[in-house]
Simulated scan of single mutants.
Amino acid sequence: MAGMTQFAPAKVNLALHVTGKREDGFHLLDSLVVFAGGGDWLTFAPADTLSLQVRGPRARGVPEDGRNLVWKAAQWLAPGRGAAITLDKHLPHAGGIGGGSADAACALRGLAQMWGVDVPRGAEALGADVPVCLHGRPVRMRGIGEVLEDVPPLPPVWIVLVNAGQEVPTGPVFKALERTDNPPLPAPAWDGFDGFMAWLQETRNDLQTAAKTVSPIIDDVLARLSQTHGCRLARMSGSGGTCFGLFEAEADAVAAATAMPADWWAEAAPVLGAMP
C-alpha cells in the first residue's frame, strides 16, 4: 500500500464555560468546538518499525519519539505495528487549539485505515481533546471532554487564528480561575450568520481572564483582532494563547490576518462543517 496524507485541523473552542470541578481535580466544561481549515498534515507509509519525522514551519522542539502524541497514538492503536510517519507541523505549541490532540486523532484515523483496524473506544486515554478531534465536526463538548452532542448546522464563517508566540501552559491558567461553578452554555440554536453571532455573544470563555494574568499579551492580540474590519467576535480559544476573530467575508478575514504583526502567527481559514 502506498503512503497517504491526511489533514489534522486546528480545534477551536468558540465558547468555553467552566461549570464545575470533580473531586479528582478535573474541571467540567461546556464548550462549542469547531475545526478550522488550517492545521497540520500527517503522511503515513508502510514500514517494519515505527518511526516519526517532524518537519514544517513549527517543527522546532517537537519530539520525534515516544513523547509525541502521534507516537503514543500509534502504539495505543496497535502495539508493535510499523509505520513511517511524517508530521508537517504548522500549528503553534501550547496554543489552545488542540495541535497535539489533532495530530493524535489524525494518526489514529490514518493508521487505522492503513493497518485495516478499527479505532477502539477509550481514546481519551491519549488526552481529553482526542475524542472531539476524532469526531471532527462542530459539536457541543461537555464533562471533561467525553460527552459530545450534535449542534445545528453552522452558517458559512471565516476565522482568523492569531498567536503572539508565547506558550501558555494549561495548569497555571486553571489555577488562576476565580470560579469553577459558572452557568452552562445556552441551548445551541441559531439561524444564519447574524443569529450565530448573536448566540455566541451570550457565551464566554471562562479561562480568558485567567489566561491574561499568565500571558498579558493575549490582551494585545484580542485588541488588534477587534479593531479589524468585519470582525464580529474576538475571543481566546481553549486555555490560550491562540485567539480568534470571526468574519462573514473571506476578504475581511484574509486582510485581518495580513494586518497582524509579522512575528505573530496568523492564519485565515473557513470554519469546517465536517472533516475534509
Rank of each mutant, 00 (worst) to 15 (best):
residue 59 A to W: 01
residue 85 I to L: 14
residue 63 P to F: 06
residue 68 N to E: 03
residue 72 K to E: 04
residue 68 N to S: 10
residue 82 G to N: 05
residue 59 A to K: 04
residue 79 P to F: 11
residue 61 G to H: 09
residue 67 R to E: 15
residue 67 R to M: 08
residue 81 R to M: 12
residue 76 W to M: 08
residue 88 D to W: 00
residue 70 V to T: 06
residue 82 G to R: 01
residue 59 A to V: 01
residue 83 A to G: 04
residue 72 K to G: 04
residue 59 A to E: 03
residue 86 T to M: 09
residue 68 N to W: 03
residue 76 W to N: 09
residue 64 E to V: 09
residue 61 G to Y: 08
residue 90 H to G: 03
residue 62 V to E: 06
residue 84 A to E: 14
residue 88 D to T: 02
residue 67 R to L: 13
residue 79 P to D: 10
residue 87 L to M: 12
residue 85 I to T: 02
residue 89 K to T: 04
residue 81 R to A: 14
residue 91 L to V: 10
residue 67 R to N: 13
residue 59 A to N: 03
residue 91 L to I: 11
residue 64 E to K: 00
residue 88 D to F: 00
residue 70 V to C: 08
residue 70 V to I: 15
residue 83 A to M: 05
residue 62 V to A: 13
residue 87 L to D: 08
residue 79 P to A: 12
residue 80 G to W: 09
residue 86 T to Q: 14
residue 78 A to D: 11
residue 74 A to G: 08
residue 74 A to L: 07
residue 72 K to H: 04
residue 80 G to I: 07
residue 62 V to M: 15
residue 89 K to S: 11
residue 82 G to P: 05
residue 63 P to R: 12
residue 66 G to I: 07
residue 69 L to P: 00
residue 75 Q to D: 13
residue 65 D to L: 11
residue 69 L to E: 07
residue 70 V to Y: 03
residue 59 A to L: 04
residue 75 Q to V: 12
residue 68 N to K: 07
residue 66 G to F: 05
residue 77 L to Y: 07
residue 85 I to D: 00
residue 72 K to M: 01
residue 87 L to H: 04
residue 60 R to Y: 10
residue 91 L to M: 12
residue 70 V to K: 03
residue 74 A to M: 06
residue 88 D to A: 02
residue 86 T to V: 15
residue 66 G to A: 15
residue 87 L to R: 05
residue 75 Q to K: 13
residue 70 V to D: 01
residue 85 I to M: 05
residue 79 P to S: 09
residue 70 V to L: 12
residue 69 L to A: 05
residue 90 H to R: 15
residue 67 R to P: 06
residue 91 L to G: 02
residue 59 A to S: 15
residue 82 G to D: 08
residue 65 D to F: 11
residue 83 A to L: 03
residue 77 L to R: 08
residue 66 G to R: 14
residue 59 A to Q: 12
residue 75 Q to R: 15
residue 86 T to L: 14
residue 67 R to Q: 15
residue 86 T to I: 10
residue 70 V to A: 05
residue 90 H to S: 13
residue 62 V to R: 05
residue 73 A to Q: 00
residue 71 W to D: 02
residue 64 E to G: 15
residue 63 P to Q: 12
residue 64 E to H: 00
residue 89 K to Y: 09
residue 83 A to D: 06
residue 76 W to D: 08
residue 68 N to L: 08
residue 81 R to V: 00
residue 83 A to I: 02
residue 59 A to H: 02
residue 80 G to Q: 10
residue 65 D to W: 11
residue 72 K to Y: 00
residue 89 K to Q: 07
residue 68 N to V: 07
residue 87 L to E: 11
residue 67 R to H: 14
residue 89 K to A: 12
residue 88 D to Q: 13
residue 88 D to H: 13
residue 88 D to I: 00
residue 72 K to S: 02
residue 69 L to T: 14
residue 65 D to A: 08
residue 79 P to Y: 10
residue 82 G to K: 00
residue 78 A to E: 14
residue 80 G to H: 09
residue 74 A to I: 06
residue 74 A to F: 09
residue 60 R to W: 09
residue 64 E to M: 11
residue 87 L to Y: 03
residue 77 L to A: 06
residue 78 A to F: 10
residue 78 A to Q: 15
residue 91 L to Y: 01
residue 87 L to F: 03
residue 80 G to L: 07
residue 86 T to P: 02
residue 82 G to M: 03
residue 81 R to P: 00
residue 79 P to H: 10
residue 60 R to F: 12
residue 75 Q to C: 14
residue 71 W to A: 02
residue 76 W to H: 13
residue 75 Q to L: 13
